[in-house]
């Protein structure tokens, strides 16, 4: 215990010393040129009137989708691969799915109390509108597809906790629908990425050839849908009860 305290305090002191040296004493020489040449390039060309522009006053979105578009595209596919990994670990055959459904119908619905449920209904509406404003306005103000999508996923999580998974599934949010919506989001991203090649003889992801802000808006909407339903899919799969999985995997059917 005493050793832990020493380790913690020495780490903290080293951290404070480094930050003091960088900020106040200016060891790295950052204070002399606050804007580096690459940053100047981004700032000048993000909303330029002529070519080399992404039609976005929000420089971060412009960097993420236009200047480093391949990076973001492959991040999206890393996310896709991880979700596919989760789905393939928890995959069930059709007979097993029927068994799961029959076992789940016997399980009690664990609703929370009335106050929490009423507030959750109110809050979820607010979260949906806020996440939509973050994502759809992402090329003008801070935010974008990923931020809006993760905010939306949290709304679904609140519904999962305050009501139950079965309530949402009864309303039509089953795994099949969610996978369909996820595929639609990915298709929108791919279509926007490939469109300049066929329509305007450009290169892949050269979205400034598309008219106006269409390219950035499409990519943001696609990312929004993909991230929302990707998270939702993982939580729907993980939400199956532990004992049901044990019964199915061991083959012990009562």
């Amino acid at each position: 215990m005493k050793r832990d305290v020493f380790v913690a305090i020495s780490f903290l002191m080293a951290f404070l010393l480094i930050s003091y040296a960088i900020t106040v004493k200016d060891v790295l020489g950052m204070a002399e040129n606050p804007l580096r040449p690459l940053g100047g390039f981004y700032l000048r060309h993000a909303f330029a009137p002529s070519n080399l522009t992404s039609h976005s006053p929000e420089v971060v979105t412009a960097i993420v989708w236009n200047y480093r578009g391949f990076d973001t595209l492959f991040e999206t596919f890393v996310f896709f691969l991880s979700i596919m990994g989760a789905l393939s670990i928890f995959r069930l055959t059709e007979e097993q799915e029927k068994e799961v459904r029959s076992l789940e119908s016997r399980e009690p619905h664990r609703h929370m109390d009335l106050i929490t449920r009423a507030t959750t209904k109110l809050v979820v509406i607010m979260i949906v509108s806020i996440s939509a404003s973050i994502a759809l306005h992402g090329h003008l103000t801070p935010g974008g597809g990923f931020q809006g999508g993760s905010a939306m996923a949290v709304a679904a999580l609140l519904l999962f906790a305050a009501f139950s998974k079965f309530t949402l599934e009864r309303k039509g949010l089953t795994l099949r629908h969610v996978i369909t919506a996820y595929a639609f989001g990915l298709a929108l991203i791919l279509a926007t990425a490939i469109a300049p090649v066929f329509l305007y003889d450009g290169r892949l992801l050269q979205i400034n050839l598309l008219p106006g802000e269409t390219g950035l808006l499409n990519l943001d909407v696609g990312e929004y849908i993909a991230v929302t339903f990707g998270f939702l899919m993982v939580f729907l799969v993980l939400g199956i009860s532990e004992w049901i999985f044990k019964v199915i995997l061991r083959g012990e059917i009562e």
Binding site: F160, K165, S241
Partner: peptide
């Protein structure tokens, strides 16, 4: 939900 009901999502 974890403390009172055990399972979180069900």
């Amino acid at each position: 939900k974890y403390v009172l009901y055990g399972e979180v999502e069900v």
